[in-house]
Design a protein around this nucleic acid. Structure first.
Length: 848
RNA sequence: GCGGAAGUGGCGGAAUUGGCAGACGCACCAGCUUGAGGGGCUGGCGGUAGCAAUACCGUGAAGGUUCGAGUCCUUUCUUCCGCACCA
């Protein structure tokens, strides 16, 4: 009799796995592969319960697939560049490299203590020069193909610190460090032309059969394809200047009573200069631009605007309409300008009412003109055009076609498709990222660093002030270079790349992490990729995943991979909450995984996070539930320990050979095989890991009941006397059945609670370890019950129950059901109208 | 405002295709074990009535389809999440 000491087992088996390199794999075309990937981690310092959940889910899948005979790639790495390390450096003077490496070391220890089955020899960190060198290589390849380009773009600017701020560093329009009001500033920045793939990224979403539908919806909405028309409004008194607007509702254009410019629109600056009060004009525009972007478009802040004093001409009505600047129009979305149709667009309606602008109804349901007096909201439904000149009387659909054609004929517009998706700005005025490998030469202009001169390494020595221009610009030996073309004096690009670049292709690098000639060897990628199962937080459902899908296409076009979609199946896992809020240091509600593991062991923690809810649901953390999982494991331990001597060793047949099982033994076998069926399907088909665990709990409960009733001194007895007599079994068949059940249980438990499972597996006399042991096989004949109790309904109410053989024929079942006394009592004297048999399981008797 | 998801016991959740609602676990209660405590084992645990067998009610609310609805349809309320008022 030995006690369950999880901490000892954790240590013992983690050491064995490490020393035997149990989870290291190589490509092997003779075996089916399974690439299981959890989103790599940002090394913030400490693993939290969200990590535990994410990696536990992945480990269950990886370990199960391994036992099912797959060659499983299960790697891990670190998304190591980023702002927090740099902020920490500014605050306490520790170099980002040093703090990042320290954090990685600490978190690696935590993950190893969890016993996740990673192939650690493939570990990578994006701050390794061997990794980010390939970011630079890819950047240059993209530059050569016109997929990377430079243009002006605005950033948040702190006028006191003279530095660029991330959105996160702008709080309520102010710098989070010094509190000064944030301005916008235009800088030359690098962009990736993701919009070149807009249609492809959109269309391919329908082929992602194993992605959650809501993620696909979010991706589609993010790409935001909309079909409509571009129409030009000429600025009055300046025929050369046109304001292009995009509209999906050209049928409402006779109701376009004014034009709205976004504060970022290029024309705004020109109008300001020509206006009576340029300074005042600019100031108002600036106010709009510093408003929070999300708030501007989400309606959280008041709609504001002002009349520029200039006017434009509605090209369909030839009316003169005022030009306003409005905060809810985004100058960098679409054409940056909107034709305002207050009668048929709610935002325009509210704006018109607020500023007393005219409203004209041009669409009605019945084609009868209607006054705008007394309107309380915009009517955006399709209908019949009124007061629209020659187009009056047409339906919205017909009018759109005819109006687009008319605009085209007159050269004032055309049908066009617009996307919400914008090119991806990757320049960051930061230190802790991949240097952009570009050189600016006075003579030759923009020159990429020659590929054979990569990597452009981050200089180590640097001072972190959080002020001024890009930190790299302050390192002369980095900045000042010779032009690769003319060898003349030149200047290096001092911005670094967005860290989303790093995370957009790391899953390829895992297939070939030490390649020094290419980002990856196409042959190795061909074997391992695409990722079969990708697991991560739903917060990455848009950006990370769309960037990765973009990079997959770039890799494809570079000939590195032969697929377009990098992730076959996606699971977005829910958050772990505590007291109804996301765990965070500032809220003081962090639950430390290490403390939990110290108390209950890694297995109980893993099992609990799997059991508490389905993976995609968010969960509320409770300590009590964890204790329940620990109790379950201890209960399994006692069960195995109890039976161990009786069932261990050679010479015990499979119960398949036994034809004399009694009812209790049969029932245990049935439960065993039913559990195998449920657990296998729950893991592989549904990823409903919580019900897989509860199925195993049921099996354990059944085995306890069986043990207590058949064996002298069941597993619950702890007295010395009981122990002496423990395990005395009358029947050989009992031993066969129990051995089968316990072996299956231990094998199925292994993905969830690998340490205890390994130990028990060894206790049962297996010397090879269960990492690559074979998953228990399911026997449908055994799982099927001999008899089944069927409820019999009369007019929808259960009026009796009959016990019948499972293989009973439908007509026989009907006969038995009608003969049941309970049913008889209710059908007596009435005519049976209908008897329903469904799925060989259920009968419904319908009486008149 | 738009989009998505979800409402089931005291709690987390289960119910594979429209077929016995509440599996499994937590909490709680009782019994046994123990000097006590802890631990363990067994049993109970949606509501109402009943000693009980059992009956009726019950999946946010109201309708509907069906022999039969947690599940499908319509309307509605609430909560959570995401956002991009997208012209």
């Amino acid at each position: 009799m030995s006690d369950y000491k999880p901490q000892d087992l954790d240590k013992k088996w983690q050491q064995r796995w490490a020393s035997s390199h149990a989870f290291e794999v190589e490509a092997d075309p003779s075996r089916p592969k399974f690439y299981c990937l959890e989103m790599f981690a940002y090394p913030s310092g400490h693993a939290h319960m969200g990590h535990v959940r994410n990696y536990s889910i992945g480990d269950v899948l990886a370990r199960t697939k391994r036992m099912r005979g797959y060659n499983v790639l299960h790697p891990f790495g670190w998304d190591a560049f980023g702002l927090p390390a740099e902020n920490a450096a500014i605050k306490n003077g520790v170099h980002p490299e040093q703090s990042t490496r320290g954090n990685i070391a600490h978190m690696t220890g935590q993950l190893q203590r969890l016993g996740i089955s990673y192939d650690w020899h493939r570990e990578l960190a994006t701050c390794d020069v061997e990794y980010y060198k390939w970011n630079q290589w890819l950047f240059i390849k993209m530059f050569e193909r016109g997929l990377a380009y430079r243009r002006k773009s605005s950033v948040n600017w702190c006028p006191v610190d003279n530095t660029v701020l991330a959105n996160e560093q702008v709080v309520d329009g102010r710098c989070w460090r010094c509190g000064s009001v944030v301005e916008t500033r235009d800088l030359e920045q690098w962009f990736f032309r993701i919009t070149a793939y807009s249609d492809e990224l959109l269309d391919a979403t329908s082929e992602l059969k194993h992605w959650p539908e809501q993620v696909l919806t979010m991706q589609r909405n993010w790409i935001g394809r909309s079909e409509g028309a571009r129409v030009s409004f000429a600025v009055e008194g300046d025929a050369a200047t046109k304001i292009d607007v995009f509209t999906t509702r050209i049928d409402t254009i006779f109701g376009a009573m004014f034009v709205l410019l976004g504060p970022e629109h290029p024309l705004v600056g020109q109008l300001a200069e020509k206006s009576a009060d340029p300074a005042g004009f600019r100031k108002r525009v600036q106010t709009f631009r510093t408003q929070d972007r999300a708030a501007r478009i989400s309606g959280e802040i008041e709609k504001e605007g002002f009349d520029t004093g200039f006017r434009a001409v509605n090209p369909f009505t030839n009316e003169s309409v005022p030009i306003w600047v409005a905060n809810f129009v985004l100058g960098d979305y679409g054409t940056g300008a909107v034709m305002a149709v207050p009668a048929h667009d709610q935002r325009d309606f509210e704006f018109a009412r607020k500023f007393n602008l005219p409203i004209r109804v041009v669409i009605t349901p019945d084609g009868r003109p209607k006054s705008s007096d007394g309107l309380t909201e915009a009517a955006d439904a399709y209908g019949i055009l009124v007061e629209s000149g020659e187009f009056s009387g047409l339906s919205s659909e017909d009018a759109q076609k005819k109006m687009v054609a008319a605009a085209r004929a007159r050269g004032i517009g055309e049908a066009t498709v617009q996307y919400r998706l914008k090119d991806w700005g990757i320049s960051r005025q930061r230190y802790w990222g991949t240097p952009i490998p570009m050189i600016y030469c006075e003579k030759d202009g923009i020159v990429p660093v020659p590929l054979d001169q990569l990597p452009v390494e981050l200089p180590k020595v640097i001072e972190f002030t959080g002020k001024g221009e890009s930190p790299l610009a302050q390192v002369p030996e980095f900045v000042n270079v010779r032009c690769p073309k003319c060898d003349g004096p030149a200047r290096r690009e001092t911005d670094t790349m967005d860290t989303f670049v790093d995370s957009s292709w790391y899953f390829y690098r895992f297939a070939d992490p030490r390649n020094s000639a290419l980002p990856v060897d196409p042959a190795k990628v061909k074997y391992w990729l695409p990722v079969d199962f990708y697991i991560g937080g739903v917060e990455h459902a848009i950006l990370h995943l769309i960037y990765s899908r973009f990079f997959a296409r770039v890799f494809r076009d570079l000939g590195l991979v032969d697929h377009s979609e990098p992730f076959t199946q996606l699971l977005t896992q829910g958050m772990v909450l505590k007291d109804g809020a996301v765990m965070s240091k500032s809220k003081g509600n962090v639950v430390d995984p290490d403390a939990m593991m110290q108390k209950y062991g890694a297995d109980a923690l893993r099992l609990y996070v799997m059991f508490v809810a389905p993976p995609e649901k968010e969960v509320e953390w409770t300590d009590a539930g964890l204790e329940g999982s620990y109790r379950f494991l201890a209960r399994v331990w006692r069960l195995v320990d109890h039976w161990n001597e009786t069932i261990a060793g050679e010479g015990i047949d499979s119960p398949d050979g036994c034809e004399t099982l009694n009812a209790a033994e049969k029932s245990v076998r049935r439960k065993t095989h039913d559990t195998i069926r449920r657990v296998t399907a729950d893991i592989e088909q549904r990823q409903q890991l919580n019900t897989a665990v509860s199925a195993m709990m049921e099996l354990v409960n059944a085995l306890y009941a069986f043990s207590e009733s058949t064996v002298t001194g069941g597993p619950s007895r702890r007295s010395d006397e009981d122990v002496e007599h423990a395990g005395q079994v009358e029947r050989k068949e009992t031993i066969c059945v129990v051995r089968e059940a316990i072996e299956a249980l231990v094998l199925m438990l292994a993905p969830f609670a690998p340490h205890i499972a390994e130990e028990m597996w060894e206790m049962l006399g297996n010397s090879t370890g269960l990492t690559h042991a074979t998953w228990p096989s399911f026997n449908a004949d055994v799982a099927r019950a001999d008899e089944v109790v069927i409820p019999v309904q009369v007019n929808g109410k259960v009026r009796g129950r009959v016990t019948v053989p499972t293989d009973i024929a439908d007509d026989e079942l009907q006969r038995v059901a009608l003969a049941d006394p309970g049913v008889q009592a209710h059908t007596d004297g009435k005519t049976v109208k209908k008897v329903v048999v469904a799925k060989g399981r259920l009968v419904s008797v319908v009486v008149q």
